[in-house]
């Protein structure tokens, strides 16, 4: 186990190195940060002097080397826009995204498991087909349109829910700003979570249904049924448990994607998380923040995938990744 972790940590460092290298090679394509931090009538010479001062004129390898040297001390550079260390900015925005992703995941789990199982057991029932069809509607509308439609109906039209932002926040230990502990904060969570889960639901419903259908055809389910076990128990304990492996795999990838790239949902709801921060950084060509963010996300993906790999081992004893060799 220990060796496994050491290996993964080394790999994570490798991933972050590669990402920073690629990040540095492509950051010019994002745009010129000087354009964003100076007024339009500033002379080209003045702008160039500033660029020189920020070290942006140096050869690419020198810039990268400087970044690495600082990164060793935990400094991923300074955001041009926020005028603060990039890592500090990212960590400040992380709670918003994590809370949104958590509520979304909860919603997805609570809806997709019963619907998926139901659709597998009664594939031809009209209700099952209705759910299958409706869930597709969510994924056929771009999430930015879903989001604005939700705002249109529930905030502008009915006036039930707030239209933007996170509402009233409570600061927990370590500066974590949470919206989970005020009714206002919870109200603000509802629409974004629905919008975000609308794009995840059809995938999981389909996955659970397809896997469940396969499992239900297996001999051990038939045996369990023949033995007279309660149908509910057969479905959940014998059936559903065995669909978990693919669900966890896909879920792992999707979870990582969600945390990193809830970009459009956050943008439309003006949800101050990492996704909105990233797209704004791209907008402002805040290249140092972009690179720091990419490195951060790389580490995040390695972590999530490591956890997923570990969970495989628990769910399916046939796979032994941890501690092998």
């Amino acid at each position: 186990m220990f060796a496994f972790f050491i290996r993964r940590v080394t790999q994570a460092v490798f991933v972050m190195l590669v990402i920073s290298l690629i990040g540095f090679t492509i950051k010019q394509s994002v745009g010129d940060p000087l354009r964003e931090i100076t007024g339009i009538s500033v002379s080209a010479a003045e702008r160039d002097a500033l660029r020189e001062k920020l070290g942006l004129n140096d050869p690419f390898l020198l810039q990268w080397g400087r970044f690495l040297a600082r990164a060793l001390q935990g400094d991923l550079g300074n955001s041009f826009y926020f005028k603060r260390p990039a890592l500090q900015v990212i960590l400040g925005k992380a709670p918003a995204t994590l809370e949104l992703v958590f509520s979304t995941s909860l919603l997805v789990v609570l809806l997709s498991i019963p619907i998926g199982i139901y659709a597998a057991v009664r594939p031809r029932a009209w209700l099952a087909r209705f759910f299958m069809g409706v869930s597709i509607v969510g994924v056929s509308i771009p999430v930015f349109l879903t989001a604005i439609l939700l705002i249109y109906v529930f905030s502008v039209g009915l006036g039930w829910l707030p239209s933007f932002g996170r509402g009233e926040l409570v600061t927990l230990f370590g500066g974590w700003q949470s919206g989970y502990f005020t009714s206002d904060g919870l109200k603000h969570l509802i629409l974004p979570s629905i919008a975000l889960s609308s794009i995840m639901l059809p995938l999981f419903i389909r996955l659970i249904r397809a896997e469940m259908k396969e499992v239900l055809e297996t001999d051990y389910i038939k045996y369990a049924r023949a033995k007279g076990l309660k149908p509910g128990r057969v479905l959940l304990v014998h059936g559903f448990k065995n669909t978990l492996l693919p669900v966890i795999t896909v879920g792992g990838v999707q979870l990582g994607t969600l945390i990193a790239f809830t970009i459009l949902t956050e943008t439309v709801f003006q949800w101050q998380g990492m996704g909105a921060m990233f797209i704004e950084a791209v907008d402002r060509a805040d290249t140092s923040l972009i690179v720091a963010y990419l490195v951060f996300v790389g580490a995040l993906f390695v972590t999530v995938n490591t956890v997923v790999d570990l969970v495989y081992g628990l769910v399916n004893p046939m796979i032994r990744i941890a501690g092998r060799r």
């Binding site: 604005i148 705002i151 249109y152 905030s155 502008v156 006036g159 707030p162 239209s163 933007f164 932002g165 943008t267 439309v268 709801f269 003006q270 704004e280």
Partner: peptide, 18 residues
């Protein structure tokens, strides 16, 4: 002061009275 970058969201916020 709240920055709202999306035009549609900004307008929705006004129409919703937020």
């Amino acid at each position: 002061l709240t920055p709202i970058s999306e035009d549609a969201t900004r307008l929705a916020a006004l129409l919703a009275g937020d």
